[in-house]
């Protein structure tokens, strides 16, 4: 048996993850004619922007930033999105689910319903409008078990559909982004990151975040072990007990389906401490839409969702 003690220094885990993500972003730039990077103002896509800076500066990003706006976003996040894009001097394209509703391509069953899954339609329309052959997103494999089996370069057919049984083999770091016209590749450079990695990276890089990621007082109603924020889109129902407590968001998305967690963490260091000690997964604590069924995410991805 050989000894395992003789070693040469290797990269610390955040350095390794960063280097892998930069390599992936450059492969997109090298292989794809017309990619876009999905930027929502959420923490994962904020990390993506820093990685893109490390990958391409002093040059410009070889892709525009794209946001599919449900119209149900917290105003702080939308303001942050616009300011961050302006600070970077990069082009931001925003496409609205509202416009798809006006066009009639998205049909709501109820006026106030979650627009989360309707984003898929608007995203596919944007892909068609601009002819994007690749879309870079901030999804991570630790988020959900359908994601755990998705490739870093994930092939989608002209309807944006993901077929879990028919994925391209992905070996070594040899990524295959080839597509025919109308087809599309979704690329996830931080596939191998966990929620804790993301927070540690945010701390190390001193990344600015929208304020709702930090503890703040908010009016909420407790529903099914989740905290439902009281907003104009999600008003309190009769009989609801409205409380004002200190909360923060672990993930930001459509107001109607994103719940905050009770927290007093007012800095990234405190959030890291809470994340290391947390007992509930990010989606379990915060997503009102994933609990619908065991396979909710798998189903949405098959329909073209990120």
């Amino acid at each position: 048996m050989t000894t395992l003690l003789q070693t040469r220094p290797t990269l610390a885990h955040l350095d390794w993850l960063e280097a892998e993500a930069i390599h992936i972003l450059r492969e997109v730039a090298g292989q794809c004619a017309n990619p876009a990077l999905l930027f929502s103002g959420g923490k994962d896509s904020i990390v993506l922007l820093r990685l893109a800076e490390k990958a391409f500066r002093p040059g410009r990003f070889p892709f525009p930033l794209l946001h599919i706006d449900t119209g149900h976003n917290y105003p702080e996040v939308v303001a942050f999105r616009d300011r961050r894009a302006a600070d970077l001097g990069e082009r931001l394209v925003v496409r609205l689910v509202e416009d798809s509703i006006t066009r009639g391509t998205v049909v709501l069953r109820t006026p106030g319903e979650s627009r989360n899954r309707h984003q898929s339609v608007t995203l596919l329309e944007a892909i068609e409008e601009f002819g994007f052959d690749a879309c870079i997103g901030g999804a991570r494999r630790d988020e959900e078990k359908a994601r755990a089996k998705e490739r870093i370069f994930s092939f989608r057919d002209p309807f944006g559909q993901w077929d879990p049984k028919n994925q391209r083999p992905e070996l070594w770091d040899l990524y295959n982004a080839r597509v025919h016209k109308g087809e599309n590749i979704r690329v996830f450079p931080i596939s191998n990151w966990t929620e804790l990695d993301v927070w540690q990276y945010i701390e190390r890089e001193k990344l600015e975040l929208p304020p709702i990621y930090f503890a703040h007082p908010r009016r909420i109603v407790r529903k099914n072990d989740l905290l439902q924020p009281v907003t104009t889109l999600t008003p309190a129902q009769e009989g609801d007990l409205v409380e004002t407590i200190s909360v923060r968001f672990r993930t930001v998305g459509d107001i109607t389906c994103t719940a905050p967690v009770e927290s007093s963490a007012d800095s990234v260091a405190h959030i890291i401490a809470e994340t290391a000690l947390t007992t509930v997964t990010e989606r379990g604590a915060t997503r009102l839409d994933d609990q619908a069924s065991e396979a909710a995410m798998e189903q949405r991805k098959k329909e073209g969702y990120f």
Partner: peptide, 17 residues
């Protein structure tokens, strides 16, 4: 993992954890 796998009672793809 996936619904497709549970239906067939097998694992059909590499999962990363």
């Amino acid at each position: 993992g996936l619904v497709a796998e549970r239906e067939q009672g097998i694992t059909i793809d590499v999962a990363y954890r």
